[in-house]
Amino acid sequence: MEVRTIKVFTTVDNINLHTQVVDMSMTYGQQFGPTYLDGADVTKIKPHNSHEGKTFYVLPNDDTLRVEAFEYYHTTDPSFLGRYMSALNHTKKWKYPQVNGLTSIKWADNNCYLATALLTLQQIELKFNPPALQDAYYRARAGEAANFCALILAYCNKTVGELGDVRETMSYLFQHANLDSCKRVLNVVCKTCGQQQTTLKGVEAVMYMGTLSYEQFKKGVQIPCTCGKQATKYLVQQESPFVMMSAPPAQYELKHGTFTCASEYTGNYQCGHYKHITSKETLYCIDGALLTKSSEYKGPITDVFYKENSYTTTIK
């Protein structure tokens, strides 16, 4: 009895394709271990004539594949690729409408935090270190965002349907971005203890939790000093293409032309909904596939993004 075979390709990165001759009487799992086709788990399936010449994702289970996976995804987590594939199996079914010149995501599976993050990423200057993220990001900007969303979920250790947080998501993504040249110098002034300067680099240099107003941050924000008295913390120097200011959701007025974009969060910790506000020729609110415009805006804002380049204080 002759062994019926077909020729397929296996890959971990969709760049390096490895030619395989597979036995049609055995499952993919018996031949390769966990195997995925377009995100779908085909591990328990036997090869079919229609699979001839198709590319299958496999887990990096030998040295060659491990090197290829690390170079593309910059992670050695053995569960990463499987999590990416199972997320992709959902995100490829989502709709990605162009809204006001940006790629958004039609609401499904509690994905409003991903839509808000995706919209924000198209408006701030950011370059990702893992080629996987950078490639998928370019495709997302062009309207094909399924891979990018699935990668975000995998890097953030999230599953489809789980509630997510924009600030946490951005923080994970910033860790995989090139923020080497970003720098922030802060000064804390206390009447009792004097003053202390701190220099922050990388992710810490672009994120701040405690106030939404970048102007206020430049002037000074009140913080408790270690001595128990009130101290003032203010920005001395900022070198970065953008800054992200966050605070627990509270009524906040966004003035046209003073910011790049913002995240609105309605609801409580267990259950809520994100919308995205962007400042173009007027203010726009993007909620999944829905767009509304207004000249002014007041609502429960939790993150505001500002364009920056270089700032030095005039406070002496």
Rank of each mutant, 00 (worst) to 15 (best):
V3D: 14
V3E: 15
T5A: 13
I6Y: 08
T10F: 10
V12L: 06
I15A: 06
I15P: 05
N16Y: 10
V21Q: 11
D23F: 11
S25G: 11
Y28T: 06
Q30P: 06
Q31G: 06
Y36M: 00
L37Q: 14
L37C: 12
G39H: 09
D41W: 05
V42L: 12
K44V: 14
I45W: 13
P47Q: 06
N49K: 12
S50M: 14
K54A: 14
Y57N: 08
V58K: 07
P60C: 07
D62A: 08
D63R: 07
D63I: 05
T64P: 09
R66S: 11
R66L: 12
R66Q: 13
E71C: 07
H74E: 07
T76W: 11
T76V: 14
T76A: 15
Y84A: 03
A87V: 05
A87H: 05
W94I: 04
W94G: 04
K95H: 15
Y96S: 04
V99D: 01
N100T: 07
N100F: 05
N100S: 14
L102I: 08
K106C: 07
D109L: 05
A115R: 02
T120S: 10
Q123I: 04
I124L: 15
L126K: 03
F128H: 02
A132S: 06
L133V: 05
Q134K: 11
D135C: 06
A136L: 03
R141G: 07
R141A: 09
A142Y: 11
G143N: 02
A146K: 01
N147I: 08
F148C: 04
C149N: 04
L151T: 03
L151R: 03
I152W: 02
I152R: 02
L153I: 08
N157K: 13
E162I: 02
E162V: 05
G164L: 00
E168N: 09
E168D: 03
E168G: 09
T169V: 12
T169H: 04
M170N: 05
A177Y: 01
N178P: 03
D180K: 11
S181C: 12
N187H: 11
N187D: 07
V189E: 13
C190S: 01
K191L: 09
T192S: 15
G194F: 06
T199P: 04
L200M: 11
V206Q: 03
M207R: 07
Y208W: 09
M209T: 15
G210Y: 02
G210Q: 01
G210N: 03
T211F: 03
T211L: 08
Q216E: 12
F217E: 01
G220L: 01
V221T: 08
P224A: 12
C225K: 01
G228N: 03
Q230I: 15
A231M: 01
A231W: 01
T232F: 08
V236Y: 08
Q238S: 03
Q238E: 01
Q238M: 00
V243G: 03
M244T: 00
M245A: 01
M245S: 01
M245N: 06
S246H: 01
A247P: 00
A247R: 05
P249V: 12
P249K: 00
A250F: 07
A250K: 11
Q251K: 09
Q251A: 09
E253C: 07
F259V: 02
T260H: 08
T260V: 15
T260S: 07
C261G: 00
A262W: 03
Y265I: 01
Y265V: 00
T266V: 10
T266H: 08
Y269P: 15
Q270T: 10
C271T: 06
G272A: 00
G272W: 00
I277W: 15
I277F: 00
S279T: 08
E281Q: 05
T282C: 07
T282Q: 12
I286G: 02
G288E: 02
L291K: 10
K293V: 10
K293S: 13
S295R: 13
E296I: 10
K298G: 07
P300N: 14
F305V: 15
K307I: 10
E308W: 02
N309A: 15
S310I: 12
T312M: 14
T312E: 09
T312D: 08
T313F: 14
T314H: 15
T314R: 15
I315E: 15
I315A: 15
